[in-house]
Nucleic acid binder design. Structure first.
Lengths: 228, 228
DNA sequence: CCCCAGTTGCACAGCGCTGTGCAACTTGCG
DNA sequence: CGCAAGTTGCACAGCGCTGTGCAACTGGGG
């Protein structure tokens, strides 16, 4: 449609980005040579597409922020019901799990791009608001502040991604399981979580196949969340 | 007692280890020079105590594994009641939080010491067993396997440590709050968690001040879990 | 068929880090 | 005081990585 002819150059560029995502996920200090070779290309070629290592990572990060923000927003915007919002956004973010992971992986050590946390801040802010609303309404219960609870949620996502990677959690079941865990840690009783997630995850899957809004992923191909 | 005279050399060695712990926590790729200067010492001196960077880190890791294993075991051994065990071990591990954190921080990238995960495996195994028991008894409820739930627990600890570091969780309240969160995510209803943690955390504090068993920390001084 | 974007291979300078050697200095202890 | 353990400052070789320049090659479109 919008892509008339993917020249081999464009193709290479995309593959480099995909591979870089995977490789930096495995090792945040992966060298340009490692990335290049993993992409079936020579180091010099990578520099043909990206002027520096920082530029490459920055591009990666832009895409990740975009994807995660879109997913999170799509989950949150529709409803003012915190329970449903939490489930929807969890399921949505789960779909771009690896994108999300590269963010947190690089956000820690990355002097490279100082502003990741800042750029992701608004996304988090929306989540915090939603959680706060739930606490106020009494549907959520926790000794933690809304903000601390959000930390918990983020880190739990990562834990479950690792669980999937290590093969002790089924990839299909992982999304709903994540949603249940989010609700549970927020103090929602087990009796409610079951039906909530059952309904919403079914609806989400249907929407996923339909995929009519283009707000999903940025230009390049989604990379698989594979085990190491 | 067992230390007749802490010579300045021994003192330096300890300070280097303490500072290295803090510094590597802040940045896992901290150079020997950074560590040395932070310890008020010259790089060459560090090499006088540790033949290589790897040796330094390895020493650090040995201490951390020892401390965490001891804390976890102390929490688990006494009782067969999963709820109480979970609370006790959470509170105990929380006391050596920074030691625990260096483990997970270095376990990922560390080609340096390949066996951290393995060395920590028995500790995790004990936790998994305890969780499984809870699931079987029905006191814990989760769509996740015991092993996956353990992943969640570990990662939640880290999230709460970050929350403390970022100043949005009170350091004193953090331990009990962590315990509550562990119970909650395991599906224990809010009504039970409150009293459980209230009782046990009080008991734990008393034991902490008494501190009669020497099984606590290895040779060198405990470092503070400070903000960045 | 030829041309040109894109790719490759190689060489190079620069940087920061590790680990080592050595000579000079400090400091506590006998 | 004088010895010895420990510390310091400096210099050096080696390594891996980044970023760049350049000449040669490849392959698909005009």
């Amino acid at each position: 449609m919008t892509t008339p002819d993917p020249s081999r150059a464009d193709l290479n560029r995309r593959r480099i980005l995909d591979v870089a995502l995977a490789e930096l996920l495995r090792n945040p200090d992966a060298s340009m040579d490692q990335i290049a070779r993993a992409a079936g290309v020579v180091r010099r070629t990578v520099y043909g597409h990206f002027p520096s290592r920082e530029a490459l990572i920055s591009t990666l990060l832009d895409g990740a922020v975009e994807a995660v923000a879109a997913a999170n927003a799509a989950g949150l915007k529709s409803v003012a019901d915190p329970e449903e919002s939490l489930v929807r956004s969890t399921l949505a973010v789960w779909e771009v799990a690896d994108r999300y992971r590269i963010l947190v992986a690089l956000a820690q050590r990355s002097v490279t791009v100082q502003g990741i946390r800042d750029r992701l801040a608004p996304v988090r802010e929306a989540s915090v608001e939603m959680i706060q609303l739930g606490l106020d309404q009494g549907v959520f219960t926790s000794p933690l502040s809304a903000r601390a609870l959000t930390y918990l949620h983020e880190q739990m996502l990562i834990a479950l991604m690792e669980a999937v990677n290590d093969g002790l959690l089924d990839a299909d079941a992982a999304g709903p399981a994540a949603a249940v865990s989010m609700l549970t840690v927020s103090g929602v009783p087990a009796s409610r979580t079951a039906e909530l997630v059952a309904n919403l995850s079914a609806g989400n899957e249907r929407r996923e196949s339909a995929a009519e809004d283009g707000a999903g992923l940025p230009s390049w191909t989604p990379a698989a969340t594979g085990p190491s």
